[in-house]
Amino acid sequence: MTRALVDVAATAQIRARIADRVVGRQREVDLLLAAVSAGRDLMLEGPPGTSKSTLLGTITAEWDIPLVFVEGNADLTPSRLVGHHNPARVLREDYSADNFVEGPLIEAMRTGGFLYIEEFNRAPEDTLNTLLTAMAERVITIPRVGSVTALPTFRVVASMNPYDNIGTTRLSTSVHDRMCRLVVTYQDAAAEREIVKRRTGIDSARVTADAVAVTRATREREDIRQGSSVRGAIDVALLASELAQMRGVTLPEVDSIDPPRGLPEDYTNVMLDAMLVALSGRIHLDDTAFETPEAVLQEIWQDHFVLLPAAAEPG
């Protein structure tokens, strides 16, 4: 198998173009590019909303190769992953290569694409064993069809959320031994503000800063097992903008991202309602928590819009 997808000079050019399309993540881009260019399969480990799919989509688009997406769950059987014979045609024609319906693994192997399996640790063990054969040999033999050999650009990239252990299985050492591993964490506040600005098109720096701040606060409380990703901040900003328009509330045009002071009550109320809708389903409380998600979010709102400005007052 060819070791690299492209030469070093081309990889450097791709790296520069990806940097223009992805906010931050330069280190992750470098490591991901290095792994797949070296011919390695890869595990991306991190919470949802940390740009894993965006990074892969950008890289495969730059290389002009397919990104074949699969969701890992209990229904991902070996036949769903590899493919199956069309039952109606089998009854008429018997088994043949012509009536075989390719699954995502065979599609990725034939086209030289990246097979991206999300929630990898939710897939059944026998499915993972089937995948190991493709990863180790780059060839799969299908009864009544023959052998399928992967093109050189074929890669397996999997992702998993280390904070979610409900309905998951422990991956075997055989799986870990065949994959490199890249941990992807949340970006800093500045990067998340830029992401929200790009995704929403909202000009108010105050709205963007507030949406990011309250969303990041959900990741810092002890009574929240897992907080919201930047997707929550995007929705907070979008909902706040829509609510403000409906209620005739003027969004602040203040460019400052410092602790908010002197903001109109109608604006802070809009932000509270936007938070409750956008974030209440995205936060997962600790098992020992006695409050509701809405009550926790109201505390976060009060900390940000009432207590923090008061603490920042002179004297």
Rank of each mutant, 00 (worst) to 15 (best):
T60K: 09
H85D: 06
R206E: 06
R27P: 10
V101T: 06
V156Y: 02
T77D: 05
S37N: 15
T60A: 03
Q298G: 04
T2L: 00
I142M: 05
Y163V: 13
A9N: 13
L81Y: 00
I166C: 07
V230T: 13
I202T: 11
R261A: 11
T50I: 06
H284S: 13
V296W: 03
S37G: 02
G46Q: 06
V183P: 01
D75C: 00
T77I: 00
V175F: 09
D94N: 15
T111I: 02
A244V: 10
E291K: 11
Q302L: 04
H304G: 03
E222H: 05
Y186W: 11
D235Q: 15
Y186Q: 11
H84L: 07
P252W: 06
M246H: 07
V68R: 03
D188N: 15
P152A: 02
V175G: 05
A16I: 12
E119P: 05
T133L: 12
G113P: 15
A191K: 11
A158R: 12
V175D: 04
A310F: 05
H304N: 13
L239C: 01
A191E: 15
P143V: 01
L55A: 12
L44E: 05
A74K: 14
R138L: 02
R80I: 00
Q298H: 07
A209S: 09
H304C: 01
F114M: 10
A310R: 10
S159V: 00
D30I: 03
T153A: 08
A191S: 14
D287W: 05
Y163Q: 15
V22K: 04
I65C: 00
V212T: 08
E253D: 03
M179G: 10
E313R: 14
L171Y: 09
V175Q: 07
L308P: 02
